[in-house]
């Protein structure tokens, strides 16, 4: 029993990891005829192809990175007060508000975006960066609010009270006590929101109309097209950018709080 359940877990982990092995193999494969288990030759074809178009890709990565960072920042700024209201206050209609905030996770965001598109055209937001940011913000808000609400609940409001009775003003309490204690939650929320925004394809395409070229938009045809070498390289770079963002956030949070490791995703 013990053996089989462990074997099952190992198998599950193997199935989880196998695709990544495939990704690595294909990114470095040259000749790999069917049905050989490993590539016959090593080649950097995918990487050189990427290097040849590096300028185009880097531009998209920078666009995406800035866009998603801005969305993350905005999302945290808007989510934090709402999360605070949900975590620390009791009020009539709280349930309704909570369901309302969660509803984008349960409703077709793409359909809403298609509908909103017409209004965005009228307002001059279609095909622009602010328009894309706004629709990203909309799809990211539930993640920000839910994660921060749970983080605030876990921290509790008593620390702020304790700081205040010791003479800390509201801002001092926030800066010296609440934010450091909330840091893991802030990192978790930023990571999640960034991933959602950075990975977004269809909303960017609908509202950006192809004018705002994010990294997702750029690699979409390659993933569809089928050259496994190039697709593998692009996928690896995609994942690396996300990992880099997580790393940067963790380091920032660690420097700010001066302790601990979170590895929050």
């Amino acid at each position: 029993m013990k053996f089989w359940s462990k074997a099952f877990l190992v198998l599950a982990l193997a199935l989880l990891a196998l695709p990544f092995a495939g990704l690595l193999l294909w990114s470095l494969a040259g000749e790999w005829p069917w049905p050989q288990l490993v590539p016959a030759t090593v080649s950097f074809r995918g990487w050189t192809a990427f290097a040849a178009m590096a300028e185009k890709f880097l531009e998209a990565i920078v666009t995406s990175g800035l866009l998603s960072s801005a969305v993350t920042l905005l999302c945290l700024l808007v989510s934090l007060p709402a999360a605070r209201a949900l975590a620390y206050y009791q009020f009539a209609g709280k349930r309704l508000i909570e369901i309302f905030f969660i509803s984008p996770l349960l409703a077709p965001v793409m359909s809403i975006a298609m509908g909103v598109h017409m209004q965005f055209i009228r307002l001059g937001l279609a095909d622009t960066l602010p328009g894309v940011m706004l629709i990203h913000l909309f799809s990211c808000l539930p993640y920000g609010i839910l994660i921060l609400r749970d983080a605030l609940l876990a921290v509790g409001s008593q620390w702020e009270d304790q700081a205040k009775v010791l003479g800390a003003s509201r801002w001092q309490a926030a800066r010296y006590i609440v934010l450091p204690l909330l840091a893991p939650g802030l990192v978790a929320a930023s990571v999640m929101v960034f991933i959602v925004s950075f990975s977004e394809y269809i909303l960017t395409f609908i509202i950006g109309g192809g004018k705002i070229v994010t990294f997702s938009l750029l690699i979409f045809p390659y993933l569809q097209g089928g050259d496994r070498n190039i697709s593998s390289v692009l996928s690896i770079i995609f994942l690396l950018v996300i990992l880099l963002w997580i790393l940067v956030l963790e380091l920032l949070a660690r420097r700010y709080t001066g302790q601990g490791r979170f590895f929050h995703l």
């Binding site: 620390w159 009270d161 205040k164 009775v165 003479g167």
Partner: peptide
Amino acid sequence: LPPEKRKAVLVFQDYLLFPH
């Protein structure tokens, strides 16, 4: 008077020492 100006310090049951 807001709490930070009262100098009436509350010591909570579970001490609430700032962990960081």
